[in-house]
């Protein structure tokens, strides 16, 4: 079996005072295989974006380990650091805030090459950038325009082109479509899937829109209050959710089908319902088929049955 491109072990990220920290990411572990898409879902404030940003070193982690492409992300030599920044990239949520309004599209796309002092010959660089634009369905005439001249979907494509500057192996996509219109979302998602097919890169797809996540992901992790509640193959997790929080989340998603909407019953979730006792050990337990669920031994026995 191949080695994972990304391995996260007991990752922690706390904010605020040491004696009373906000545990945004509270001891989570998962991995992403080369070429696969792992969806990371959860509601606002569950720590999913913090997870992404900590992995890519935008935040300093409080504890745990992040290993990307076989190397730990906080013990990198200068050369490895360059490699890290080139091969691990990010797409952001807000297509309006993620592009510098004072720079043309060309300048935005050339920034990475400037930083790493690559493709210094004018012609070579130009070809490279036109290639990036074409790979996201834009053309060279767009290169000299400013971001505000583009629609939301086009801007997001520019953001994707920037992330592709160095043929990354993993892209962390932090809610890349939630600010877009429905029909534009589909365009962007299709584009991301095609790029993945062509280049064989992996995605960590962070989102709160469960239908889209199911569509794009091979595997899905569900986060709640800084912890992963359940992780498994996309279809498996959607069809056979085990954790009550996952069930509640899935039951809340409205479907574009009035008929089934009439019969939909929402399941509510309350963290107190577990009635965990002090001495119970809570961890991700294997329900088979790579389907892990965060629970106590007692719950494991009853849910497994």
């Amino acid at each position: 079996m191949a080695e994972p491109i990304l391995t996260v072990k007991n990752l922690q990220k706390h904010f605020g005072a040491k004696n009373n920290p906000l545990k945004a990411v509270d001891d989570i572990s998962f991995h992403v295989m080369p070429g696969e898409t792992l969806g990371l879902v959860g509601e606002s404030g569950c720590g999913k974006s913090t997870t992404g940003r900590t992995i890519i070193n935008l935040y300093d982690k409080t504890g745990g380990e992040v290993e990307f492409d076989g190397r730990n992300n906080d013990r990198l030599s200068r050369k490895e650091q360059k490699q890290f920044h080139q091969k691990l990239q990010m797409i952001f949520q807000d297509p309006y805030a993620s592009l510098n309004p004072r720079m043309t599209v060309f300048e935005i796309l050339e920034e990475g090459y400037d930083i790493h002092k690559l493709y210094k010959k004018k012609k070579e660089r130009r070809e490279r950038i036109y290639g990036l634009l074409e790979s996201v369905g834009l053309n060279r005439e767009h290169a000299n325009r400013y971001p505000h001249e583009f629609s939301g979907g086009q801007r997001q494509r520019i953001g994707i082109a920037r992330a592709l500057s160095f043929d990354p192996k993993l892209i962390i996509a932090d809610e890349p479509i939630s600010a877009l219109d429905v029909s534009i979302q589909a365009q962007v998602v299709n584009m991301m899937k095609n790029i993945q097919k062509e280049r064989g890169l992996a995605y960590l797809f962070i989102a709160h829109d469960l239908s889209m996540v199911k569509y794009i992901s091979d595997r899905i992790a569900v986060m709640y209050k800084g912890k992963i509640m359940e992780i498994g193959d996309a279809a498996d997790l959607y069809e056979r959710p085990v954790h009550p929080y996952t069930k509640s989340l899935l039951s809340a998603v409205p479907q574009p089908d009035p008929h089934s909407e009439k019969d939909r019953r929402r399941i509510s979730y309350d963290a107190d319902m577990h009635e965990y006792t002090e001495d119970e050990e809570l961890e991700l337990r294997d329900f088979g088929n790579n389907h892990l669920v965060y629970c106590s031994k007692k719950e494991y026995d009853s849910w497994k049955a």
Binding site: G153, A186, Q187, V189, S211, Y215, Q255
Partner: peptide, 25 residues
């Protein structure tokens, strides 16, 4: 049609491309 087609429902087949509305308004 375009709007309805571009939204995956939970039963959508992921092998299939999402139907999109080409272009911009």
């Amino acid at each position: 049609w375009g709007l309805l087609g571009s939204m995956p429902d939970m039963n959508a087949d992921k092998k299939e491309e999402l139907r999109t509305i080409p272009g911009s308004p």
